[in-house]
């Protein structure tokens, strides 16, 4: 990352801690996300990657620590929580599209319900986004009629429909058939190239290597190593990161 000032900080987590009974999910995690950054979070399953991501938009409440969205503290139950969540989009592993309405309505529901946009503007924007993820012809389809890869592309467009300051991806390709992984990663790459700020939890190391400017390696609820993606993955200085990368099939 080049020069950064306080002004361009979009997300800031400080000292996040979270336990599930005896299991430590997060153990003092700090993360700062600057405007335009693409950060990938890698590491073994159960290392706390998803919990970190879910804390960043208040889907999980940390036991300790704080999250700030554009400088404002994110507190679940506070009156401004919905407004802050709108600024941070989320793409889930299992898509979670709304099955009872059309693809187009999936994109326009949130902007019209929370009244950030009138219906005409929301519809126009939604059609642009569907075009961008290559699904303009599926606007009137129901989510159930789409393949997994198509559903995930709709989910990405749905998150973008709120014009968020940052997008969070929680293992966006883990629930997909191998042959549809590529189309989803392709869409994420394109959005990244447009300068969208993103945090991506992924097991696709080669994808992480070419999409992200910065990579964070987590294990046992801690950040073990982080830094500019290319040097971090090419010449890892951490033994545990090296061991992790050696176990991964690609790279």
């Amino acid at each position: 990352m080049s020069v950064s000032t306080q002004n361009d900080v979009i997300l800031q987590a400080r000292g996040l801690a979270k336990r599930w009974g005896d299991v430590v999910a997060l153990d003092g995690v700090d993360l700062t996300v600057h405007k335009g950054e693409v950060i990938t979070v890698i590491g073994p399953s159960g290392g706390g990657k998803s919990t970190l991501l879910r804390c960043l938009n208040g889907l999980e409440v940390p036991d300790a620590g704080s999250v700030r969205v554009g400088g404002a503290p994110l507190r679940v139950g506070a009156p401004d929580i919905d407004a802050l969540r709108r600024r941070v989009g989320m793409v889930f592993q299992a898509f979670h599209l709304f099955p009872h309405i059309s693809v187009l309505d999936n994109l326009t529901l949130a902007p019209t319900v929370v009244c950030t946009e009138d219906r005409a503007t929301a519809t126009r924007h939604a059609r642009e986004l569907l075009d961008r993820v290559g699904l303009a012809d599926k606007a009137s389809a129901r989510p159930g009629e789409l393949s997994g890869g198509q559903q995930q592309r709709v989910a990405i467009a749905r998150a973008l429909a709120m014009r968020p300051d940052a997008l969070l991806f929680d293992e966006p390709t883990s629930a997909l058939d191998p042959e549809t992984v590529g189309e989803v990663l392709g869409v994420i790459r394109e959005i990244a190239a447009d300068g969208t700020t993103m945090v991506i939890v992924t097991h696709e190391i080669s994808f992480a290597a070419d999409v992200s400017s910065r990579t964070v390696f987590m294990e046992h609820g801690r950040i073990i190593a982080e830094g500019a993606t290319q040097p971090l993955l090419r010449t890892p200085t951490s033994d545990r990161l090296r061991a992790f990368l050696a176990r991964m099939p690609t790279m």
Partner: peptide, 20 residues
Amino acid sequence: GQWEAARSLGLSHAQALRHV
């Protein structure tokens, strides 16, 4: 996941209930 998707888009609890 339906609740989480709705809330992550900025819908309130009541809006998520009503629309999703």
